[in-house]
Write a protein that binds this DNA or RNA. Structure first.
Lengths: 334, 334
DNA sequence: CTGTTAGCGCATTCAG
DNA sequence: CTGAATGCGCTAACAG
């Protein structure tokens, strides 16, 4: 691999001049510019990133630590974050905690060692200490999707309460009174917030407060199956299920399908997170649209702000409701 | 951030000794070991990756450049690759070409600059020159999912011909004669191979050779809609559609659903790539199971082999067929 | 505008 | 087994 020294030699200029031309950091004569550029092209020169990072003490790399890359919500978020980062001159290093606190910790170390310029993270909620240490060590940090109590870090999340309100109001209007809730893990902020909102609006709307209607999983499909089975096994007979996560909705649908074969009628499903196949099942699944792209984009924006010394803004992205029921205006928002 | 110098000073040893203890590269006395370890912990020392990389001229990072991170096939592949890499002591830097040759080229440069130890790539098929240059520059390379002609690089792909054969044989046995094919872009190896296999087995089985039954998209959902509409608009009346990609299958299903409302009966869908919601639509979608996890795993294995000087083995992962039709033994493999 | 020089933090030589 | 010294490739002073 050619180094900048080779380029300088071939161009017949000093190392410093070559560096200035290649990084465009300061004025150079048209002549040197031409010769260095030509030499670089001829040698197929590509700057050595680690050396550059060592010297500049920045990497132009952002880390993105998601909870589960196979969850469409996060792959969408990652995609949007990557686009936005590239637009701003950063590269994104993506890592997957797989809903596992230990892996999260391991990647936190890896990122710290790589000396990334900033980290976008959907925290599992467990190791507040590690996150605080990272933040205190000066690493710009922004939370996406999930928040962590007691840490003053910009957070871009969804307005969970509002989303749940839309879903329950809609169910209530459609006449449902026995609504089951399949929530996420209570130790994760989204799990907790959505559950709290469910309980609150359930009561406000006068829906059944039967505790057997409430279950929770871990944001993975299989747990949606299990939670739904648990609700049904308890003897409760919901007419609708509100699932707090898109992947879990898959499990809910599958579990209801199993049961439908035996005894139950059609149970309505409403999902927090809109997946692209929800219009294809029957009955179609209505959903709270959770804007992963916006969260990814705003997350990068806030992170770059922090990196560049500006205050990073927190956001609560608002949701909309997609009514896919027979009478509903499919795709209608707000 | 504490440096190794700080650690050495606090431990009362020389920089060299501290380095030896921390990297375990050579024998050290129990005494120094204890003191250095303690000092490192006290200072919350995390080695500076760029400096380390510069000195060792390796990064312990593998690049993974996928075609589309929102395609479940690739998020599954990425997940498996990441697990396998971690198991072998590497970190994966994941990037998304978004089915775009220019982005692919941009990330190729970024990776080269980062001096990653090796690259796993699902090539778009276009810039053979850039890939050859990379390979010739000495970067260990392995292709996943897609191959590139004329480049001697280990390739882990699916046995496309076999998969298409399974699908068509099954359709033939179910009595279908008018089978439409929604393929991928012919310039991508998987697009080309699956199309060629379709044509071949279509003729061998004596299925309709009506050219209006063949269309192609770009491996994204929307193109599946368009290709299906095009087939139907041509006046052809397929009784089944074979889609060459999971995301496109989503589009195929959506387009057929639209049409079904107006005039068509139920058209059977078979998909190359099995998505997790295929059992939930009616009629359910049968599929060729394309083992993304195996490809990711074997890809990392081959890449690490190349990095460590061993020859990297190419593989054709075999498929199985998931029969979800009324009479079919759902989940049956082979 | 340009050449020269000094490190960034670390692993690794070379002497002890 | 350890300390001292060297340089990986690059950018950013510092003088001209």
């Amino acid at each position: 691999m050619a180094t900048i020294k080779d380029v300088a030699a071939l161009a017949g200029v000093s190392l410093g001049t070559a560096s200035r031309v290649l990084s465009g950091s300061s004025q150079t004569s048209p002549d040197s510019r031409a010769r260095v550029t030509a030499a670089a092209k001829q040698l197929n020169y590509i700057a050595n990133g680690p050396a550059r990072s060592l010297r500049r003490s920045r990497t132009d790399v952002l880390g993105l630590l998601v909870s589960d890359i196979r969850n469409p919500f996060f792959s969408e978020l990652a995609h949007a974050a990557e686009r936005e980062a590239q637009r701003r001159g950063y590269t994104v290093l993506l890592a997957n905690a797989d809903e596992d606190a230990e892996q999260e910790a391991a990647y936190l170390r890896t990122f710290a060692s790589q000396r990334i310029d900033g980290l976008l993270i959907a925290p599992q909620g467990s190791d507040v200490g590690a996150l605080r240490a990272l933040r205190d060590s000066g690493l710009p940090l922004v939370f996406v999707d999930r928040a962590v109590d007691g840490l003053d870090v910009p957070t871009i999340g969804t307005d969970n309460e509002d989303g749940i309100r839309r879903a329950l109001t809609w169910l209530h209007e459609k006449g449902h009174r026995e609504v089951a809730f399949v929530g996420g893990p209570p130790e994760v902020s989204t799990g907790h917030e959505r559950r709290a909102a469910f309980l609150r609006f359930r009561d406000e709307l006068g829906l059944s407060a039967d505790p057997r209607l409430v279950a929770h999983g871990d944001f993975r499909a299989e747990s949606g199956v299990e939670a739904t089975r648990a609700v049904l096994a308890s003897g409760a007979r919901p007419t609708a299920v509100l699932s707090a996560d898109g992947l879990m909705t898959l499990g809910v649908a599958r579990a209801l399908r199993e049961e439908a074969a035996s005894e139950l009628g059609a149970v309505e499903i409403v999902s927090f997170d809109d997946l692209d196949w929800f219009d294809l099942v029957s009955p179609p699944i209505s959903a709270v649209r959770n804007d992963a792209s916006a969260i990814g984009r705003l997350g990068v924006e806030a992170l770059v702000d922090v990196i560049e010394g500006r205050p990073g803004a927190s956001h609560r992205v608002t949701t909309s409701f997609v009514d896919r029921s027979a009478g509903g205006a499919a795709g209608a928002g707000a």
